[in-house]
Design a protein around this nucleic acid. Structure first.
Length: 271
DNA sequence: CAAAGGTCCTGCTCGC
DNA sequence: TGCGAGCAGGACCTTT
């Protein structure tokens, strides 16, 4: 489910209910996520005030008075704010119960998500310490991409989906950005010129920013029953459109597995 | 049986 | 031979 836009939208959605407020208790029902939930988590977070809600890549960080609660939504995770929480359903693995009564419920059917307690500086934790730049930040540029691509023969789609290169580019928006930049997803990363990387960096920023804007339009519905993020309303040009006409040249959209992930592209517009 | 929006870890190859 | 970097594949799960 979550690409960067949904994680950002989730962050914005939960912040008003958490920031500056006190946690009552944490209820852990399932510790076996992709990484085991920190042992004794409830005892570590109970009673603390949430200083700040932040995002780094697709990780969500709740900065508490003494440490940091780290979430990753994996493939199928979601965070919802509930004022009158129904009994937990299947896959509702963890609740943060605020003293206000609001409950932040973590649901994750595939259990690829992560919930960890980080005692020290979270940005020095091994999951976060080596992450690449934020795609919407100033240090993510075409020049940067060009430099880190040197000597790398892997497909450019793999490169931009590598969180140590740049965070937050998931499978949907990797395909979309490469289409917008006119670059074939399987092209070796070291065989792309600097101007084309400028175009790609611009395209990555554009598709992500547009999706965040679309998600933001449904923020007021954050607690809506179905919880569907608004960025689904963003028009996708190639993703999941195998066989449909390319919006530019009408060539049928191709699908190919690259780096074990489905990739969609126009073989005429993308070289 | 295949596929789904993520990413960490392992073990291999290659070049110095 | 040793070492680091790069890279492919496997692993973790459930639902459709």
């Amino acid at each position: 489910m979550p690409e960067l836009p949904e994680v950002e939208t989730t962050c914005r959605g939960i912040t008003p209910y958490l920031k500056g407020k006190y946690i009552g208790e944490a209820v852990v029902r399932q510790r076996r996520l992709r990484l085991p939930v920190t042992r004794g988590l409830a005892g570590k977070v109970g009673g603390q005030r949430v200083i700040q809600v932040a995002r780094r890549g697709k990780y969500i960080l709740l900065h508490l008075q003494r440490g940091c609660l780290l979430y990753h939504l994996g493939m199928s995770g979601s965070l919802r704010i509930l004022q009158a929480p129904p009994p937990p359903a299947a896959h509702d693995h963890l609740d943060i119960v605020m003293k206000s009564g609001a409950v932040m419920r973590f649901r994750d059917p595939r259990r690829f998500g992560t919930v960890l307690w980080l005692a020290g500086d979270p940005l020095r934790h091994k999951l976060l310490a080596h992450l690449g730049p934020e795609p919407l930040g100033e240090d993510f540029t075409g020049d940067y991409l060009y430099r880190v691509a040197q000597g790398r023969r892997t497909a450019v789609k793999n490169l931009i989906m590598d969180s140590h290169i740049v965070v937050g580019v998931g499978n949907i928006y990797a395909s979309e950005a490469l289409f917008a930049a006119g670059i074939h997803p399987a092209r070796p990363a070291c065989r792309i010129s600097k101007p084309r990387y400028e175009k790609l960096a611009h395209a990555i920023r554009k598709v992500l920013a547009e999706a965040i804007t679309a998600g933001g339009t449904t923020l007021r519905d954050f607690m809506r029953e179905d919880g569907r993020p608004g960025y689904f309303s963003v028009k996708l040009s190639v993703y999941h459109r195998e066989g449909e006409a390319c919006p530019i040249c009408a060539t049928p959209i191709a699908k190919r597995i690259i780096g074990q992930r489905a990739s969609f592209y126009c073989s005429r517009c993308q070289r």
